[in-house]
């Protein structure tokens, strides 16, 4: 197993190297860090000086190599716009995003599996049709609109109606000033952004789970399980569910990995300074060190989650267990 993981990690290195170069080159081609000096009095000399200072006069491969060797040593450079250390900025932003994704994915999985299994077992029942309708609504509703509706109807309206001092659910940040740790204040901040994230993922994942479950329920081994005289509950949860979880595992891994790039809209609306906001801010000013750090962290998470999916797959399905 360790060998398998090591191999997978090893093979992902070229992907990271190549993609970081492409991004590096793309940013260098599209943004000019010296653009702000163009209107200066002594523009030509100043720009030439700055270019030399930033190393922009050297070939792109050399520039990239310089960046890459430093990056590997833990020196991720400074942000072009804030002059802050990129390592500090990224880890801070990552902290916020991880919290959102952890709760979002956890709740989404539980709800999606429950809804999917229920819908499949009671296929074409009123509840199934209703849940199908809701999931289409969830998929179709843009997250920013849902977030705004949620703020209006779950936070603003109740506060006004019942003349509360504070809203039931907050919609700015993850803590009130002076608060920290896991407490009621945290939960009241989490509910709306996590709900926004969950509505979309549950909508898709529950469809996935329903389809997988329906597929499995018509399998021959389910008929065998019933022919043995097993209880319905045993047939559904022991025989069907375990097989039906496999497709969702890979879907979750892909989606969760991608989420680390940032929930740009959700983070923006709820003023959470996570990875998505970091990326947007850096992209707007061509902050190459931040964008590269963001990209690599995102890529590492995608790889990590795919690895995790493979491990979970192996646990669920003995046929693909690694020798």
């Amino acid at each position: 197993m360790i060998k398998f993981i090591a191999r997978r990690v090893f093979f992902s290195i070229p992907v990271l190297v190549i993609s970081s170069f492409i991004v590096f080159w793309g940013i260098r081609e599209t943004f000019d860090p010296t653009a702000k000096y163009r209107t200066s009095k002594d523009a030509t000399r100043l720009i030439a000086e700055k270019r030399k200072e930033l190393g922009l006069d050297r070939p792109i491969v050399v520039q990239w190599w310089t960046w890459a060797t430093r990056f590997v040593r833990g020196d991720w450079g400074v942000s072009a716009s804030t002059n802050g250390k990129v390592t500090a900025m990224t880890s801070r932003a990552l902290g916020f995003t991880v919290q959102l994704i952890f709760w979002g994915v956890l709740i989404s999985l539980v709800v999606a599996i429950a809804v999917g299994v229920y819908s499949a077992v009671r296929q074409y029942s009123v509840a199934d049709v209703a849940l199908t309708g809701l999931s289409y609504l969830g998929v179709a509703m843009p997250p920013f609109w849902f977030a705004l509706l949620a703020i209006q109807f779950l936070s603003v309206e109740p506060k006004l109606r019942w003349h509360l001092d504070r809203p039931i659910f907050y919609f700015v940040g993850l803590h009130s000033t002076g608060q920290s740790g896991f407490n009621m204040d945290y939960v009241r901040h989490l509910v709306l952004p996590v709900l926004t994230l969950t509505v979309q993922t549950v909508a898709v994942w529950s469809r996935f789970q329903r389809a997988a479950m329906l597929d499995v329920l018509s399998a021959d081994y389910i008929r065998t399980a019933r022919a043995k005289g097993l209880r319905r509950r045993q047939v559904i949860f022991k025989h069907a569910l375990r097989n039906a979880l496999l497709p969702l595992v890979s879907q979750t891994a892909v989606d969760a990995g991608a989420l680390f790039g940032g929930l740009i809209i959700t983070e923006s609306i709820f003023s959470i300074p996570g990875m998505g906001r970091l990326f947007i801010a850096a992209l707007l000013v061509g902050d190459v060190n931040v964008i590269l750090a963001w990209m690599l962290v995102g890529a590492v998470f995608v790889i990590l989650f795919n690895l995790l999916a493979d491990v979970v797959y192996g646990i669920l399905d003995p046929r693909i267990r690694v020798q």
């Binding site: 021959d220 081994y221 008929r223 022919a227 375990r242 097989n243 669920l316 046929r319």
Partner: peptide, 12 residues
């Protein structure tokens, strides 16, 4: 049943 491969649960 006829098809023993598909009639046995692969993960148990």
């Amino acid at each position: 049943f006829q098809d023993a491969l598909t009639s046995l649960n692969p993960v148990i």
